[in-house]
Amino acid sequence: MAVGLDFGALADYAPVFAKGVAVTCELTLVVGGLGLALGILCAWVRTQGPRVIRPFVSIYVELIRNTPFLIQLFFIFFGLPAVGVSLGEMEAAILAMVVNLGAYACEIIRAGIEATPRGQYEASASLAMSRLQTFRYVVLRPALQRIWPALTSQLVIVMFGSAVCSQIAVEDITFAANFIQSRNFRAFEAYIAATLLYLALALLLRQGMRMLALVLFPRRRAVR
């Protein structure tokens, strides 16, 4: 059965796509914030935190980075209820994505922290700053600035990963495309539209991160 493309068939389903875009955006923003926080925490532990918990963070990072996101999501959504932790699809999706992004962000931010010049630590020590103060006021911001492009790319990857969450019935863009093609059998059109939406969102996200960088890092860094 050969048929031509007919994007007009999608017009009736615009609200479905709109909902999908909203859910994908919500997932990406919530996960971006929480995952970044988790990443900073883990990076701090791995570089300067208590030595006792460092191995645990390493194991967490290695485990997440070496298994597929799909399996992590299924483990959390289908597996955890078996041990008594039952989550809705949205909570499970957010948890899985935060845990995933946290591990990748940890490695990226750690690289930024380790690139801090020795002199910065010495200077803050000479100002009698504690280790935590040094980290908070001296190390963190330039470290984030250094790795901001890598972090942006990772966030885009996480947004693409959110497509997988449609498999546990999170009503994101992919879910919308699946729903539409099951109704009108216009699979090719539905998935092309969804793909273009992802492409647009990725560009928007990159632009947003660029603008966020202008707010977060108003001054150009002096020391490379």
């Binding site: 693409f160 990963g161 497509a163 997988v164 992919t174 998935y191 092309i192 793909t195 992802y198």
Partner: peptide
């Protein structure tokens, strides 16, 4: 610039 899942579906 697009999710792998979308490429698979397409």
């Amino acid at each position: 610039g697009t999710p792998l899942l979308m490429q698979l579906f397409l």
